[in-house]
Amino acid sequence: MKPDTPALFTETALVRRKYRQETVAKWVFFVMAAAMIIPLLLIVGYLMVKAAPSLTLGFLLDVPVRGMTEGGIWPAFVGTIYLVFISLAISAPIGILAAVYLNEYARDNWFNRVINLAVINLAGVPSIVHALFGLGAFVYAARFGYSILSASLTLAIMTLPVIVASTREALASVPRSFREACWNVGATRWQTIRAVVLPNSISGILTGVILQVSRAAGETAPIMFTGAVFYKAIEKGDLFAYGLHEQCMALSMHLYTISTQVPGVKESIPYATAVVLLGSVLLVNAAAIALRVYMRSRTKW
């Protein structure tokens, strides 16, 4: 070693600048990330304060009274549950199976490229267009009329491409070397999928599906065109209030109605409705996160 070589860890100007940059960069990124919390806190806080006078269990379980200016939101709450469940019951199996095909079986030929293109473009269709399509296809052409069925089918088509995309992502996160190891010992693709691919992507797949709950619950246009009504008289607290071919109320639609269409609504009611909508969605999302954390705690590689 030459005697004038600097010792290894002396602090040169270069090193000091590097550290300073590192600190600045880290803080800039951190502040931006932390800023994400602010809108959520503001929204939730604002809603809670405004909604406070109406936030009781009774509000959830009661039916609206006096021309929807007072009372609760039960019919709309149940309606939303119906729409979300039925639409996802349709779109989740189809979307997941389609994604398995696209990710595990499909060769790179023109037909599969067309499918891919269709999925991508379907995801980009605005919800109002879905609404119009649902009106034409399900309400009129298929003669389902304005009904829960038509509305759910419309929502299903709307959520389908996103479920396909998220499922494919989950499947793609399973390393290819696992599949090759299975193929090498003479396993078919299906045996490989069942033994190795699905068990290791199921949490990601379910998370993707659950996140679509919030979309299905929140959209107004598609259901307004196809099966949601302003008002429907049902029993207070009745869970099985609607039939498939009936119309229903829904939270998103109800919120729109009482905020803009009905005069003289008690001021806190729209906010309380929004709290219920947001609360349900956040609850479901929290479930998705919990599921993911649980599954990750048992990751296998």
Binding site: S177, F178, E180, A181, C182, N184, A195, V196, P199, N200, K300, W301
Partner: peptide, 10 residues
């Protein structure tokens, strides 16, 4: 037997 070790996640 492939060059890279692969234990399957089972």
């Amino acid at each position: 037997v492939a060059p890279l070790p692969v234990g399957l996640p089972i």
